[in-house]
């Protein structure tokens, strides 16, 4: 589920704020200390043995829709076969070799009774998409990916937000004139593909309820959707904020990293830095920013490698209030 709010907590769900760098996100801090890795990990594991062919791992990934399989025998953990390993095997023509020859063995692992804050720091520090989880006896007990964390955190946060929001009241208001004034903020988490798109869906529904012209609604929705997916695929997480006033829709997608090296290149048709498994989910074809630019009346992007990226899309949606 996505979290829709202007409440203080939502603003803190920006990357970096997980650790209380610039603020005191007390709700989150409390949560990530309270929850243990074992509360969040996927415990039921699909594994392969060392001498299983890479093709068997590929087949399992396809069937189970997962992006990495641990190599394990009798609870002993040897390594991990990822989608990238499979793609390399297909490219290099060694897909029938045993997993033990090509699996990733340089691995960082987590322990099941570490607090969730540890896992978050690991994801921050290393570029891996998942970590195997071992118990005290060094037996493999699960695997944890960012999506697991996002899902659990969002569930916990939403219940908290619902409580806060019912206290602070509605956040759609009308100003003195008859112009509609809407302001929404949607926190977007990295790799949370299940929730990605929900903000754009809601934006479209709100505009439809307000009876704006369908053509304009579609442009706003497309821009919001692409920016939302971008935050999900490419950033470490960020916030999509949207406001409408006086027939002007303004979407701002802001993240705290990793930043874009060559902005001009990124805005070109067909260029993409997405990995193969993101492509396999139907994203990362390199058309996102081009598409946002195409539907926007004003488009602005500022980015710096190593820090964050901000994209602004302004779309006129009828000069007269509906």
């Amino acid at each position: 589920m996505s979290v829709v709010s202007q409440s203080p907590v939502a603003r803190h769900v920006k990357t970096g704020a997980y650790f209380g760098v610039d603020n005191e996100p007390l709700v989150l801090l409390e949560l990530i200390q309270r929850l243990k890795v074992r509360d969040v990990m996927t415990p039921k594991l699909v594994t392969v043995s060392r001498d299983a062919p890479m093709r068997a791992a590929q087949e399992l990934m396809r069937k189970k829709k997962i992006s990495g399989i641990p190599v394990e025998e009798n609870g002993r953990f040897f390594g991990l076969v990822s989608i990238d390993d499979i793609i390399r095997a297909l490219g290099g023509g060694y897909i029938d070799d045993p997993c033990s020859r090509h699996m990733t063995t340089k691995l960082v692992v987590l322990e099941d009774d570490m607090p969730l804050s540890f896992a978050l720091r690991y994801f921050d520090r290393y570029s891996y998409g998942r970590f195997p989880v071992l118990n005290r006896d060094q037996r493999l007990v699960g695997i944890i990916c960012q999506r697991d964390i996002n899902r659990v955190l969002l569930v916990e946060l939403t219940s908290e937000l619902n409580r806060l929001e019912s206290a602070s009241g509605q956040n759609v208001m009308r100003d003195g004139s008859s112009n509609i004034y809407v302001l929404r903020e949607f926190p977007i988490c990295k790799y949370d593909f299940e929730s990605a798109g929900k903000a754009a869906n809601q934006i479209k529904q709100i505009l439809q309820e307000k009876k704006f012209p369908p053509k304009d609604i579609r442009r706003v929705a497309v821009a919001a959707y692409e920016l939302e997916i971008n935050l999900c695929v490419h950033s470490d997480g960020g916030v999509l904020s949207w406001q409408v006033a006086n027939g002007r829709s303004e979407i701002i997608a802001r993240d705290a990293g990793p930043g874009i090296e060559d902005v001009e290149w990124a805005c070109r048709d067909g260029t993409s830095t997405a990995s193969e498994w993101i492509r396999s989910l139907g994203f990362g074809a390199g058309m996102g920013l081009v598409n946002v630019k195409r539907v926007s009346d004003e488009f602005e992007i500022t980015s710096k490698k190593g820090s964050g990226t901000t994209v602004k899309s302004v779309i006129q949606i009828g000069n007269t209030p509906p």
Partner: peptide, 14 residues
């Protein structure tokens, strides 16, 4: 396909 990528060729071979 719309996938203009070298991996597409690898998969075709496969």
């Amino acid at each position: 396909t719309v996938q203009n990528h070298k991996n597409t060729v690898a998969v075709c071979t496969l």
